[in-house]
Design a protein around this nucleic acid. Structure first.
Length: 542
RNA sequence: GGCUCAAUAGCUCAGUCGGUAGAGUAGGGGACUCAUAAGCCCUUGGUCGUCAGUUCAAGUCUGACUUGAGCCA
């Protein structure tokens, strides 16, 4: 209804282009897992999906980090990029495009875009004086600084005095248009609390911002003044456009924008909201381009209730976590247990409790016990009945009938928690249904017809649950499908779907959202635990 | 200092249009046996952050305050 993206046939979603100053942290992993899951859901629905991620590689901070490490900036970037890419692979992220802002094509796109903004008369030369934090890549107000001119966000770093002749973007010109945008499209910035922040910020009055830097060699030279380089944010946001270029297409802004622009969803962390919700739409207005559909900013994490900070040494290392526990439990915990859009906490004990309770005990055991009964009582085949044989008042049939639509709404709202809860409700009801109907007793009483219907209802509910959870735990879902005798690999569905010849087969999976598609008398696989319980592997911090 | 959001069971959270609180998980007990000691049933936990106000009636509406998170380029 108010989610146009869910009704069109293509869907383009981005993660931020991560700044390669340092190795990936948990926030990077979180955004990317969410983006991957939402992309997978749209692919299941037969849409032509493009998941864009990548890295932002320019700027003085990176230049200095590289120098400190004694390497060329490009070498430094290559090293960090390899770590990101390796993490995405470990987390089972199926991205379609990985854009690096040092890619040659990107420079062309930035130049063309700059020219458009220039032609609109929105770039002028001015002077900027003030305290500059290299770590933030921003000017700071003196009143905001800590003692001894340290940056409030980077207490270990001193700010530097700058007196520069820079080029500015006329952001102030777009204040009214931006306010009109927020008013006309209340969904443009989500969640609402973030939207309010932006509204207040803009209402204060917008100042033009500098889009170039002098004395920064690691960047894209300004087309109109090669002594300066383009400010990293102006550069980085355009990475979303460059990423749209087909690999074999001629590099031009028109070609990049030709088929998929505008982006349906920018997923970001709340730290970079202003750039995406204010600067970016204004830049696009200036270039006379359509605006993205939606910007969604999620929250941050605490560890065991405490703020994560380097000085505390309590950072969550996503690489260590995924090496220790694997991708599926992490994907599940972060998307199911943390309210998307709000801040959340990571606590290892709780993580293990939740994942064991839901994936092993509720879902895993449901599949295992039902397949065990099918093997014993039905010789390892799906019972000889189908959905139309099941009474209309069967509780699982009733729940299953609406679940697909319910979960679709949740995914479209990025309400991963709601999606999981709705699915778990079917799982729990299935466990209860088994206990209520006691198939083992029906078997002893030779009530084979009733037994068949009970087992069919439960098998089908397990199948539907696996399908609907597949954007979050694709390997577990694939395993459940395999044990149900269905040869569908959810990782494969979510790859290469942009091939035209594959679109038809993708479309075929959509009917799996309905309850009642298991075929009578087809052979089931061998029952095996789909999820082995986790044990605490590191001592919980006290 | 200005502003935004939040505060409900040990933990994570629901709670619609005001009608004296719910789920999951954790803890305790029970019956059962198909199953990964799992699932199912019962159960212990709450002055709904504090104080006022409006109302026949406030977790819900209003004001102030406290605490936490965040925004103020």
């Amino acid at each position: 209804m108010n989610h146009p993206a869910s009704h069109s046939q293509s869907f383009t979603v981005t993660t931020p282009l991560y700044y390669v100053n340092d190795v990936p942290h948990i926030g990077h992993a979180y955004t990317t897992m969410a983006a991957d899951s939402i992309a997978r859901w749209h692919r299941l629905n037969g849409r032509d999906v493009l998941l864009i991620t990548g890295t932002d590689e320019h700027g003085q901070k990176i230049e200095r980090t590289a120098i400190a490490a004694g390497v060329n900036p490009q070498v430094h970037c290559d090293r960090i990029v390899a770590k990101f890419d390796s993490l995405w692979s470990k987390l089972d992220i199926k991205y379609d495009r990985f854009i690096r802002t040092t890619a040659p094509a990107h420079r062309t796109i930035v130049n063309e875009f700059f020219q458009r903004v220039w032609d609109s008369g929105d770039i002028y030369k001015g002077t900027q004086q003030g305290w500059y934090c290299v770590a933030c890549e921003e000017f700071k107000e003196e009143r905001d600084l800590l003692a001894d001119k340290h940056c409030p966000l980077h207490p270990s770093k001193q700010v530097e005095w700058r007196d520069e002749s820079n080029y500015f973007f006329r952001l102030s010109k777009y204040q009214q248009q931006l306010e009109a945008l927020y008013a006309e499209r209340p969904d443009f910035i989500l969640p609402n609390s973030r939207r309010n922040e932006v509204l207040k910020f803009v209402a204060q009055g917008l100042q033009d911002f500098s889009i170039s830097r002098v004395n920064v060699d690691w960047g894209i030279p300004l087309p109109t003044d090669p002594d300066q380089t383009i400010y990293v944010w102006f550069d980085a946001l355009l990475g979303y456009v460059t990423a749209l270029l087909d690999p074999d297409a001629q590099v031009s802004l028109d070609n990049a924008l030709h088929s998929r622009w505008p982006i349906d969803l920018h997923l970001i962390g709340k730290d970079i909201l202003r750039f995406h919700a204010v600067y970016w739409p204004a830049m696009l207005m200036s270039a006379k381009l359509p605006l993205p559909e939606r910007v969604f900013a999620h929250g941050y994490f605490t560890k065991d209730g405490k703020k994560i900070s380097k000085s505390e040494g309590n950072a969550i290392d996503p690489i260590a976590l995924v090496d220790c526990y694997g991708a599926e439990p992490l994907r599940y915990y972060f998307l199911k247990e943390i309210e998307f859009g709000q801040d959340g906490d990571f606590n290892e004990t709780r993580f293990i409790e939740i994942v064991n309770a839901d994936l092993a005990n509720s879902l895993g055991n449901l599949v295992n016990r039902t397949l065990g009964m099918a093997k014993k009582y039905c010789q390892g085949y799906i019972p000889n009945c189908n959905a139309t044989d099941i009474a209309a008042d069967n509780p699982l049939k009733i729940l299953g009938r609406d679940l697909g639509a319910q979960v679709d709404i949740a995914y479209n709202n990025l309400a991963f928690r709601d999606a999981c809860e709705a699915i778990l409700n079917l799982v729990r009801s299935s466990n209860k249904y088994i206990d209520d109907l006691a198939p083992w007793a029906l078997f002893k009483q030779d009530k084979h017809l009733e037994l068949a219907q009970v087992l069919y209802s439960v098998l089908e509910s397990a199948r539907l649950s696996a399908y609907l959870l597949s954007p979050i735990v694709p390997k577990i879902s694939t395993d459940i499908y395999r044990q149900l005798g269905l040869n569908i690999d959810f990782d494969l569905i979510c790859c290469n779907n942009s091939n035209d010849d594959n679109t038809a087969s993708v479309e075929n999976w959509k009917h799996h959202q309905q309850w009642g598609i298991l075929q009578a008398n087809s052979q089931l696989g061998e029952p095996q635990p789909i999820f082995t319980k986790l044990e605490v592997k590191t001592a919980p911090s006290s």
